[in-house]
């Protein structure tokens, strides 16, 4: 149970970090951490199918799409 508490806490901290960071690449990595921890929570909630989808898409493909978009625009938020 303590494990779940720590995971949820870490997930919320990562989400807040994603809103604070001025460097958009750091923000995207923090958002990927949110997705990764959400995948672990899905697994603990007995949803292995959804956990696989979230780990493959939320943590990998979404990050790649964001980073390509940031490379084509600006990296820092003014």
């Amino acid at each position: 149970m303590i494990f779940v508490f720590l995971l949820v806490l870490l997930m919320l901290i990562a989400a807040i970090a994603a809103s604070i960071f001025k460097d958009l690449i750091s923000a995207v990595i923090a958002a990927a951490l949110v997705s990764l921890i959400a995948a672990i929570l899905f697994y603990l909630l007995q949803a292995p199918d959804v956990a696989m989808a979230e780990a493959a898409i939320g943590a990998a493909l979404v990050t790649v799409v964001f980073i390509i978009a940031i490379r084509r625009t600006k990296r820092f938020e003014e």
Binding site: P48, D49, A51, M52, A53, A56, I57, A60, L61
Partner: peptide, 10 residues
Amino acid sequence: PGGGFQGGAI
């Protein structure tokens, strides 16, 4: 566990 959507993403 798994299927078309997850496999497609991989």
